[in-house]
Nucleic acid binder design. Sequence first.
DNA 1: CATAATCCGTTAAGCGCTTAATTACCCTAC
DNA 2: GTAGGGTAATTAAGCGCTTAACGGATTATG
Lengths: 341, 341
Amino acid sequence: MVGGKRPTISDIAKAAGVSTGAVSYALNNRPGVSEPTRRRIMDIADRLGWVPSSAARSLSDGRANAIGLVVDRPARVIGVEPYFMQLISGIQGALAGGPTSLLLQVTDNSAAELAAYRRWWGERRVDGVLLVDLVQNDPRVELVRELRLPAVVLGEPVVPDLPCVWTDDELAVAEVLEYLVALGHRRIVRVAGPTKFVHTQTRSRAFTTAAARLGLPDARVVHADYSDEAAARVTRRVLTSGIAPTALVFDNDVMAVSALGVAHELGLTVPDQLSLVAWDDSALCRLVRPALSAVRRPIAERGAAAVRLLLDVINGAPAEQVKTSDPELVPRSSTSHPPTP
Amino acid sequence: MVGGKRPTISDIAKAAGVSTGAVSYALNNRPGVSEPTRRRIMDIADRLGWVPSSAARSLSDGRANAIGLVVDRPARVIGVEPYFMQLISGIQGALAGGPTSLLLQVTDNSAAELAAYRRWWGERRVDGVLLVDLVQNDPRVELVRELRLPAVVLGEPVVPDLPCVWTDDELAVAEVLEYLVALGHRRIVRVAGPTKFVHTQTRSRAFTTAAARLGLPDARVVHADYSDEAAARVTRRVLTSGIAPTALVFDNDVMAVSALGVAHELGLTVPDQLSLVAWDDSALCRLVRPALSAVRRPIAERGAAAVRLLLDVINGAPAEQVKTSDPELVPRSSTSHPPTP
DNA sequence: CATAATCCGTTAAGCGCTTAATTACCCTAC
DNA sequence: GTAGGGTAATTAAGCGCTTAACGGATTATG
């Protein structure tokens, strides 16, 4: 176990006085060696501190024992948003103990993302990939299909034959709206992420539908890009032009926090004069004053479920579409009755 | 390029009517093939969409073309703190374009971290690793030395022969204290991270030294664990027992934000009655009201520099100790004169 | 003109592991 | 006594690539 020299199966074979084939069978728990021999080999193996060379194994069985994740968001956004770190935590949880590792890439343009998948595939570096932030007609879908690269989408089932892990956001959207309406709000605006994302569209559709059902003609959707700057700009505009809404629902936590600042700047007290709801609960929401009411989604659970599904798919399982537990609204101090005019 | 079948050098060799050896030489830009042949081979190679199999290459040249990073912080902390995502951004920046990938592992205990390094080494999965959050007598130092695993420390040079990338925190600590003293503060408390971390000790030492130099007998250090909960608890205690300080300096952004909440809860206005300084500037600091004065450190730059250094070390370069650009104090609205009693 | 040096290319071994095919041996059955 | 059937091992091929060693052809050297 001392520096530099890593034992190989032939070292073990030599020490045990058997062939390397026997060692391989023994170490992989397959028939072909007697129980005593197997024990002896395994003892020697871990006395020597043997660990299989992933390269050799990959080369021979075609498995990389790694999965890939590419996150394509500009650096300035990715830093603040706790979402990805939570996701990664969940992923790691499901990976822990197993032989599979996570390859991570952060890019800031979608071409680089495609290139990354293509390269990983070509290099046989990954057995499969996770796809986040699907957009309309996402080129990645075609790519993984063309490459026959096992992939799991983190998001709602848009492509019939692609496995995915999704959360029922529509439900949560409706719940939030009903909650706000119950508090007395009638003018509600949703500050969404970029239109291109499938999940943005899903939520916006659900928002519009629920608003119609609840009879809210003034409900509408405006767009920002998840960053605090854009959110501030949009919020400022929404609150100062025309008939201001009494409640805002955001597509992430950062934008909601940013809006809190804007409200303060405009002299509006939250929640007395303006109610705010964040999407994706995080410590961020708890930290600010007033603490933000938020929709908590099982992010880590999603990551873990996606990994499990991906590993299954890699092993030939059919393309399931897994639903996580439902999001829940966590009311805090940023929501209340609208001001009585 | 269509599904499933990846071309190998022998496909190229066949198409070009040469041996695989020639193809290898051509593709690797080494002497041994004529210029026309090289061109022909390369043309065929990228017409076929050839990408080298990392497993095969690793097996034959012993290079994994990957570096590893293990982050050992509890999930609840890692989510909020933008630090790691920024670090990862920097790392990816330096890796982009090259053949090297990043293997990431998130654990919540140091034994698992050691095991991860050991496994990666055994599997020959990484050519080197990045070490963050060094502690006193860190077992990882001994481990990488024992394994002869190339490693770069992200932090100040504690071990003479270990390459590292560090930022002059002592300078920043002094600058912050001088700034606060210039504003008129005399009673200043530093809310630090866990004592075990080397960087905590460095900053605390610098704090004590600078405080002595500036003649501040009441300056002291208390500890929390980077989480908002612990920070809230500690801050509450500091502000309510004995002679309360007029300024607090925190070891990360999350704790400072948390303290903002506590101040609010205690009816203390920031910055009029209490000044706060965060360590590690982030969008978080800009987002809250009042916006937090913070020490901005070049985190992404650190990550990038560490990667470059690590790649050099892997290629046999000597163990340099690289210093990044200096941190800078970004004054915002959370610092002001102390209240006049 | 023989000999050496140079260039371009092939051959083959080897990296560490898996696995189908094969051999060797012991038991039981007829 | 031999055929049949396990079981426990070995052998060897192969995964895709690199690279030292080698060989033939062309060109320079004395």
